[in-house]
């Protein structure tokens, strides 16, 4: 990873020397230095030499390839800052996306939200207006109540008057009756008085004669 980043930071990766050319000199050195020390037959020597050749070449190769910069040989030049037709294509894609999103998202949803806002605001204002309506209704109710009260009191008064008149009528009637009876009784009394007076008058003459006879016997 680090190698790759390092490699990418370098604009030009220098190709590592090829394996075959670097491996050969090492092989020669190994042949000249190591082989004479063990005493071995030609056969063994040949076998050994081929195997050591192989392994040594591997050592050389790996030591080269494992060295950080040379690993980049396997990786091609990293093109981090490479501009090409991708740029205008992305621009075009972006503009198309912008128009498409505007058509299906920004404009309709924005309009929808604004409309809903306006609607809610209108409804809210309506609610404020109904408070006035409620006041009006309350006034109306009060008026109705007042009218009802007036009506009831009027009816009450009327009834009172009616009953009073009735009572008075009955009273007057009773009074008349009583008076008539009184008159009758008085008339009776007068009649009886006159009768007694008459009776008394007739008796007075006889009585006075008797008195005179008694008082004046001599006469």
């Amino acid at each position: 990873m680090a190698n790759m980043i390092m490699a990418s930071s370098r604009t030009l990766v220098t190709p590592a020397p090829s394996l075959s050319t670097t491996a050969k000199p090492k092989l020669i050195i190994s042949n000249s230095t190591k082989l004479p020390t063990p005493k071995i037959t030609k056969d063994q020597f040949l076998k050994l030499s081929t195997s050591t050749l192989k392994s040594l070449s591997f050592v050389a190769a790996t030591s080269l390839t494992l060295a950080p910069p040379s690993l980049a040989v396997e990786i091609e030049k990293a093109a981090l800052f490479e501009f090409n037709l991708t740029l205008p294509i992305i621009m075009a894609e972006f503009l198309i996306l912008m128009f498409a999103l505007d058509k299906i998202y920004f404009t309709p949803v924005g309009k929808f939200m604004d409309d809903r806002d306006a609607e809610i605001r209108a409804k809210l204002n309506d609610v404020k207006d109904t408070s006035g309506e409620v006041k009006q209704l309350e006034e109306q109710a009060a008026a109705i109540l007042k009218a009802a009260r007036a009506e009831i009191s009027a009816a009450l008064n009327k009834m009172k008057k009616e009953t009073q008149a009735e009572v008075e009528e009955k009273l007057a009637e009773g009074r008349k009756k009583v008076e008539a009876e009184l008159q009758e009784a008085l008339a009776n009394l007068e009649q009886q008085k006159e009768e007694t007076m008459k009776a008394l008058d007739s008796q007075i003459a006889t009585l006075s004669q008797e008195i005179v006879k008694k008082v004046l016997p001599t006469v």
Binding site: F81, T86, I90
Partner: peptide
């Protein structure tokens, strides 16, 4: 990719 970001920045 640098192409994308530069495209957006230029826009």
């Amino acid at each position: 990719d640098i192409n994308t970001t530069v495209a957006l920045a230029l826009l």
